[in-house]
Design a protein around this nucleic acid. Structure first.
Length: 436
RNA sequence: GGAGAGGUCGCCUAGUGGCCUAGGGCGCCGCACUGGAAAUGCGGUAUAGCGCAAGCUAUCGAGGGUUCAAAUCCCUCCCUCUCCGCCA
């Protein structure tokens, strides 16, 4: 259940249109509406019968207490009435349970309607909101000499910064081994990003488990929808996290915040594991698409009225990282059919990698509004003593490492084959240059 | 992994089949008393669903079972604590 039955009843048209805009079948909305009516009817019948049964049982207790024989005719009659109600309840509850399961399945297939300012359409409707930095050309002239920027895997091989072949040997393809200064660069980036998000952006640092249980995987919607994308330890029913979003958002599952606690803003490092099923053959060179990578993720819990602005701020905090690293990037506002099922609004950050001459997605910043919060029952009390309401959740990478590393290598490579360390990372790397 | 003890309302705790519609304490909120406060007194204080409402229903770690009736009895599982074993 993600959209909320009350909202389904109140504004079916908006939800129907939202489904159409995202390329989903709007007929599901009507089917859900019909089932919801049936559910309420059955629930009413069941509740009435339960009230009758409870009253009858109570009478039996009273009768025995006031001296009636427990096996006498008076008690037997009452018992019969209660049993009859009980049998009927059993039948109605079975029908109700079926209706609820079906309804829940339908509700899970209704997407979160996109915000009004999101462009309607597929990939081609995505909007470039802004671009930052100099988009470097592959061909360069330095001191009169022509040379071409190389892709990151060639640089890494020369400077011994990662080793894909040995990664494939010890684990499998798509599991890079970072070595020497490459390994240090990983540490440096994680440290650097967390330092900025905590010290400058005021977020609370989280170091979450890399595996979660089924309830958590269900909470953020990894199962059942995206089960193919995850590595699963079946023996223990644990799931390797595809992003820190999963454990960190689940931190507050089934919890109620006080209004004074919000916003709650986390920055979390975690390794990320993705099977990338069906993606074989795409982006196979280098570290652009791997099964294990590292990422610092930002996760926000906000009051509903603050979430629109929070998404802009969140996106800006991811941009700060790219700016400090001196990497050229652009911000895309994703169109309805390209943004995902659960997002209400989403920005993608793409960094320019001049060696492969491509924009690489390094961050995806989304506002889920109350969709995710409903699924996980994450609420807050607007006023002390008031009825709890759903919070709004947001998250965004800040940033994903592998592609950022590729962009750094390709942006900062020199004609002599060495790598200049971005200024922001020098204190972390304890050097300003990586040489062979 | 083995043995034991537990899991009840925000927290602590009572509760061993029907008077539990879950009692008490702490905390919190309101009111009274006060010049103001403390202390004291009175009242309130979970979540969800359904209903115009009065109210009804569900939830005592989770799920199943026994019963007219389950916090209470039975089964399975999860978690916490103590001790032992193993271990970075």
């Amino acid at each position: 259940m993600s959209i909320g039955l009350a909202r389904l009843r109140e504004e079916p048209d908006r939800i129907r249109q939202g489904a159409i805009d995202k390329g989903e079948d709007p007929a599901i909305v009507d089917a859900a509406l019909a089932l919801e009516g049936k559910r309420r009817q059955l629930l009413g019948e069941s509740d009435t019968l339960k009230a009758e049964r409870n009253a009858a049982s109570k009478k039996i207790g009273e009768a025995i207490r006031t001296g009636a024989a427990p096996n006498g005719p008076e008690v037997a009659a009452l018992r019969r009435a209660s049993t009859e109600a009980g049998n009927l309840i059993e039948k109605i509850d079975a029908a109700l349970a079926t209706a609820e399961v079906e309804l829940e399945e339908l509700m899970l297939r209704i997407p979160n309607p996109a915000d009004a300012d999101v462009p309607v359409g597929d990939e081609s409707a995505n909007q470039v909101v802004r671009t930052w930095g100099e988009i470097l050309a592959r061909e360069v002239v330095t001191d009169g000499a022509r040379w071409s920027r190389r892709p990151h895997w060639e640089i890494a091989a020369d400077l011994k910064m990662f080793d894909l072949e040995r990664g494939a040997k010890i684990t499998g393809s798509g599991f890079p081994v970072y070595t020497g200064q490459g390994s240090r660069l990983q540490r440096a980036l994680i440290d650097f990003m967390l330092d900025i998000h905590t010290a400058e952006h005021g977020m609370t640092e989280i170091w979450p488990p890399a595996m979660v249980n089924a309830a958590s995987a269900r909470g953020t919607g990894q199962i059942p929808d995206k089960e193919d994308l995850m590595y699963i330890a079946t023996r223990d029913e644990l799931y390797l996290v595809p992003t820190a979003e999963v454990p960190v958002t689940n931190l507050h599952r089934d919890e109620i915040f006080e209004a004074s606690q919000l916003p709650v803003r986390y920055a979390a490092y975690s390794p990320c594991f993705r099977r990338e099923a069906g993606a074989a053959g795409k982006d196979t060179r280098g570290i652009l698409r791997v099964h294990q990578f590292d990422k610092v993720e930002m996760v926000f819990f906000e009051k509903p009225e603050a979430s629109t602005e929070a998404l802009e701020w969140l996106t800006g905090r991811a941009e700060v990282i790219l700016q400090r690293l001196g990497l050229a990037y652009r911000v895309l506002l994703m169109a309805t059919k390209d943004m995902g099922f659960v997002q209400a609004k989403k920005y993608d950050l793409e960094v320019w990698a001049p060696g492969v001459e491509r924009w690489l997605e390094v961050s995806s910043c989304s506002n889920f509004r109350d969709y995710q919060a409903r699924r996980m029952a994450i609420r807050y009390r607007p006023e002390p003593g008031a009825k709890p309401e759903l919070v709004h959740t947001l998250n965004g990478s800040g940033l994903a490492l592998a592609r950022t590393v590729a962009a750094i290598m390709e942006t900062y490579q020199q004609s002599d084959g060495s790598l200049v360390v971005p200024e922001a990372l020098r204190s972390y790397m304890r050097t300003d240059r990586v040489v062979a």
